[in-house]
Simulated scan of single mutants.
Amino acid sequence: MGKTVDDFISKNKKWQAGLEELRKLILASGLEETIKWGQPVYTLEDKNVVGIGAFKSYFGLWFFNGALLNDPGNHLHNAQEGKTKALRQLRFQSKEEMDKSLIKDFLEQAITNQKDGKEVDIDTKREPEIPEMLSEAFEENTELHQQFKALTPGRQREYAGYIREAKKQETKERRLKKIIPIILAGKGLNDRY
């Protein structure tokens, strides 16, 4: 991943012309440019508004509170239906198919929403639904339970979901065995270790 927006754009040669055009449009809107998660992100008063992404089959924008944008033409995509609550993508497969007036409209809406303090309400503090297998492991190992409780609610939900989403009992057991030492180390499931 690049350390600058120029690095990011130059590494994505297939989409380079389109990415450069998106960058120009966003910078003209007055947002501040930065790099987060190895990709260009544009902020307003340190709040994420929009980012640029490049993927195998498309490039485009992702709006951090895109679910609040007025989109009567259904141009915005939810990358993970049922999981992603706020984020929406505007995808392109060529620079030529980019509709600048549509892009500017979405940018204006996103900026106005951010200025007005509008955000998708995501309940990040809700307690996770603990699978029975994980509850039983907590009963057998109080240190495991204490370390789990010390994790953020988001990390707790990741672990609970990791077990719950497995279809086969043996997969659930294998996953439980894998996560116990990670939890005991005080790390999240997706942390780099």
Results as ranks from 00 to 15, higher is better:
1 M>W: 14
7 D>E: 02
9 I>Y: 08
10 S>T: 04
11 K>P: 02
11 K>N: 09
13 K>H: 09
16 Q>F: 14
16 Q>D: 14
16 Q>L: 15
17 A>N: 14
19 L>R: 03
22 L>C: 10
23 R>C: 05
23 R>V: 04
24 K>D: 05
26 I>S: 03
27 L>F: 00
28 A>M: 03
29 S>P: 08
30 G>M: 05
31 L>I: 05
34 T>K: 13
35 I>Y: 04
36 K>A: 07
36 K>T: 06
36 K>E: 03
37 W>Y: 15
37 W>N: 13
38 G>R: 12
38 G>P: 07
39 Q>V: 15
39 Q>C: 15
40 P>I: 08
42 Y>T: 01
42 Y>H: 02
43 T>L: 12
45 E>R: 09
45 E>V: 07
46 D>T: 13
47 K>E: 12
47 K>P: 09
48 N>G: 07
48 N>C: 07
49 V>E: 00
50 V>Y: 00
50 V>I: 01
54 A>S: 10
57 S>R: 03
58 Y>W: 14
61 L>W: 01
61 L>M: 03
62 W>L: 11
63 F>P: 00
64 F>T: 06
67 A>Q: 11
73 G>K: 15
73 G>A: 15
74 N>Q: 13
75 H>A: 12
75 H>M: 14
79 A>I: 14
79 A>T: 14
80 Q>C: 11
80 Q>M: 11
90 L>W: 01
90 L>V: 09
91 R>W: 01
92 F>G: 08
93 Q>Y: 13
95 K>M: 14
96 E>C: 05
98 M>D: 07
99 D>L: 08
100 K>M: 11
101 S>V: 05
105 D>P: 02
105 D>K: 03
107 L>K: 03
107 L>A: 04
108 E>M: 10
109 Q>P: 04
110 A>R: 03
110 A>E: 02
110 A>K: 02
110 A>G: 06
114 Q>V: 10
115 K>H: 13
119 E>N: 12
119 E>G: 04
123 D>V: 13
124 T>D: 04
125 K>P: 02
127 E>H: 10
128 P>I: 06
129 E>C: 07
129 E>T: 10
133 M>I: 15
134 L>T: 03
139 E>K: 04
139 E>W: 00
139 E>A: 00
140 E>S: 06
143 E>R: 08
145 H>Y: 09
152 T>V: 14
153 P>R: 12
153 P>K: 14
153 P>L: 10
154 G>S: 15
155 R>H: 12
155 R>E: 11
156 Q>V: 10
156 Q>N: 11
157 R>H: 11
157 R>Y: 06
157 R>C: 08
158 E>I: 10
160 A>Q: 06
160 A>K: 08
161 G>L: 06
162 Y>W: 01
166 A>N: 07
166 A>C: 13
171 T>C: 08
172 K>T: 13
172 K>Q: 15
172 K>P: 13
172 K>W: 11
173 E>D: 11
179 I>F: 01
179 I>S: 00
180 I>H: 06
180 I>L: 11
181 P>A: 04
183 I>Y: 01
183 I>C: 08
184 L>W: 09
185 A>W: 00
186 G>S: 06
186 G>N: 01
186 G>K: 02
189 L>S: 11
191 D>G: 03
192 R>L: 00
193 Y>S: 12
